[in-house]
Amino acid sequence: MMSNAATDPRSLMLRPVALADLPALERIAAASEHGISSLPNDSAKLRLRIERSLEAFASMDDASGEETYLFVLEDRARGEVVGTSGIAASAGFHDRFYSYRNEFVVHASSQLGVSRRLHTLHLCHDLTGYTLLTSFYIAPDYSSGLAPQLLSRARLLFILLFAERFNDRIAAESPGLADAAGQSPFWDAVGRRFFAMDYPQAEAVTGGRSKAFIADLMPHSPIYVPLLPEAAQWAIGQLHPVGELPFSILQDEGFDADTYIDIFDGGPTVEASLGLLRTVKHARQLSLQADEGAPGAAQDWHLVVTGERASFRAVLAEIAQTAHGLPPGHEVRERLGLGDDAGARLLVSPLRPSALELERV
């Protein structure tokens, strides 16, 4: 695979997964570390995941909430899939979606004149029903530059375009600390006490990130963090190194990472309102009939998305912040296969909002 330095962002396209992508997904699932990807390292299960995604993209019925959408990032210059990302329409559709909620309680004695503020973890299903961002993976050679931005942020514009299918509250789990063998200090101190399995075994049994029946075996009383081993305390809210890139993108979007952690490995679970996220706040619709705006205006990198659900496509393009549209013959129209289709929806959002846009917030 070529180095990212030679990658032209214009060659990248995010699109719905297809059955022909199965070999690429098999490679990605095999390359993912323990507990990091929600893609199962099993060919039959991957095929089923693709088929369910195809059904979700193509369905004309009202959304039920059980839909899962899987996207692939393709380097079209090489005809190669270099990343995946996904959306689960409703977290915990079949089972409650469990997390630990960070809280602090105060214990005080007036006689002793002592007051202590203690960190506690409360098992909860506050995030049940939230729309969940899943399955982020980017090939190492593409992890710098703009490819991860397209892979992560374009999902938010998909949710915005088809908002009737999703919750306006969005969450995403990030992988917590685990060693090369997949052992997690948080799991060893908490989950393993009540579910006699190593972390990789528990991940395999639950089929990825479904945790309801494990939560049923966990204590529902608060866990006092100072009573945990030091390694487990340190692991709370900490990221596995491979999770740092997608996590940083979500933080930049405006997700809150302080309230919830994963019940498996203690990694941070972020959440936010869709309308407050940066990509959504600064999104605007472009006409396919209007011009590009003032000649010579500065060009900035934008996410550009179009299409109905099954034909959704997202690319990166340099467009003026003041542009009102893309005229016929514009190279972005060609890349998106729009041609002279003046009726297509075209939504764009800058990767870095201009000062003028920031003043409007």
Rank of each mutant, 00 (worst) to 15 (best):
V348S: 08
A323L: 11
D75S: 13
D62S: 13
A24I: 06
L316M: 06
P175E: 12
F255T: 02
L70Q: 08
T68I: 09
A31P: 03
N102G: 03
L132I: 11
L358S: 01
D8V: 04
G337C: 07
L39S: 04
E80S: 12
I319Y: 06
F93E: 05
N167H: 12
G208T: 03
E203M: 10
D198R: 14
A154P: 14
E230D: 15
Q238N: 10
V332N: 04
H122A: 08
S287D: 12
L316I: 11
Q149L: 10
P327T: 07
H240W: 13
P9C: 13
K211Q: 09
I249P: 00
G243S: 07
R153S: 12
L346W: 02
L157R: 00
G208M: 09
E230W: 07
A31K: 00
F136C: 10
G325K: 12
W234Q: 11
P200G: 14
M60D: 13
R116D: 14
K45V: 08
L146V: 03
I249D: 01
P328S: 15
E67V: 05
R15P: 05
P185F: 02
S273W: 02
E80C: 06
P40V: 08
F247Q: 01
M218V: 12
Q201V: 07
G35E: 08
S99L: 06
H125I: 06
A294E: 12
V348C: 08
V17W: 04
G267E: 01
P241M: 01
R49T: 15
A196L: 14
S221M: 10
F97R: 09
A139E: 04
A163E: 15
A298S: 14
S99V: 02
L217A: 05
G35H: 01
I261K: 04
V361S: 02
S53M: 14
A20E: 14
E55L: 13
R15Q: 10
R333W: 06
E271H: 10
A272K: 00
R333F: 10
R96S: 07
P9W: 06
I319K: 04
T134M: 04
T269M: 06
T128G: 04
R169T: 14
R15G: 09
S59V: 08
P9T: 09
T128N: 05
L46D: 03
Q321G: 03
A355P: 01
T206R: 13
I36N: 02
F213M: 05
Y199M: 13
G267P: 01
S43H: 15
E331I: 03
P350E: 02
I50C: 03
E271K: 07
R169Q: 15
H122R: 10
G113T: 06
I87Y: 04
D291S: 12
Y142P: 02
R345E: 13
E318Q: 15
F255V: 03
S354C: 00
S311W: 12
V106E: 11
A231M: 09
P23D: 11
